[in-house]
Design a protein around this nucleic acid. Structure first.
Lengths: 162, 162
DNA sequence: CGCAATTATATTGTGCACAATTTATTTGTG
DNA sequence: CACAAATAAATTGTGCACAATATAATTGCG
């Protein structure tokens, strides 16, 4: 699981240079992206993480909190209050599962379903702001998904070792 | 400033597919990266954003809050409490500028300076977890910096229009 | 000089993120 | 059936992020 780590021959000064840290480019680009979404989602009273949850539900309605969390990589500590806000907006319902009383099923309301049509134009609008062509975006998407997969698998390996 | 937005001929179902949203890959990869850093920084009592601020100060000591914020793309609302925590850790000092009493100068303590040597190995350790080669990391870094630049310039354009 | 506009930082309030813990329920094993 | 282990959500506490506002100091212009 552990890759061979080739220690680079970069000079000492350069190693901690902020602009050479891919982690920082990732971090700052992600925040910039969220800021681009903010004014586009604000008319609907939505935040970016709330929008992500809705994307999942529009693909597959009626999911448990856990299943939702696995899709968006968030846990109940983040999702529970977020889902309560979506419930307050009347976009979703939260219902205890009848058979397994531990589960809570998240389902779209008709308002939540209809919202899909109102936001469907947003991704195209955002992609305009990226300065990337569609193929470039697709490539970057694949690179980031692969990166995420490696990071998460190493995270899980660390946790399993404990 | 506005790019021409070629509307893709993707089918309606696919447009809002979570796994095709580069924004989400960015968002989730960034959080995964922060989680990789967490156990590496925890021994020093540092969070990832605090580490970023230290990276800036190790490059150039004695900066105002604003100047720091421009480097890490964070504002005083985020930085003021973060810097107070670094001060409490005795890693930095916060001093009002004598000539311009509005500015606060952030400076490393000797402890803060010496910490650099303790964390200098971390980037190499992280890069092992990315599953990427060094050239791949460098390329991704450049792509993300370019993306961030486009997003931020469009954000500023929106703000200027108000 | 006087004072309005600007600038720098701090504060407030909302909403994530996440580790750690708690509560409630179900499942597996004797 | 009993009950320990496992599972699913919710809760708690800390630390970002950021918009909006407040506070304080400086600058520029008449």
């Amino acid at each position: 699981m552990q890759n061979e780590c080739v220690t680079s021959d970069l000079n000492e000064q350069s190693i901690l240079n902020l602009d050479e840290q891919m982690c920082f480019a990732l971090y700052s680009a992600s925040h910039a992206m969220t800021k681009i979404y903010k004014p586009l989602l604000a008319p609907f009273g939505l935040t970016y993480p709330q929008y992500l949850v809705l994307l999942v539900l529009w693909q597959k309605d009626q999911m448990t909190v856990n299943a939702l969390g696995e899709r968006v990589f968030l846990d109940s500590g983040t999702l529970t209050p977020l889902l309560k806000r979506l419930e307050k907006l009347a976009l979703i319902t939260r219902k205890r599962e009848a058979i397994d009383g531990r589960e809570v099923i998240i389902a779209l309301t008709s308002l939540g379903q209809s919202l899909r049509g109102d936001v469907v134009h947003i991704p195209a609008s955002v992609s305009c702001n990226t300065g990337c062509t569609l193929p470039e975006i697709k490539l970057l998407n694949q690179q980031l998904i692969a990166l995420r997969a490696h990071l998460n698998s190493n995270l899980n390996a660390v946790k399993a070792a404990r």
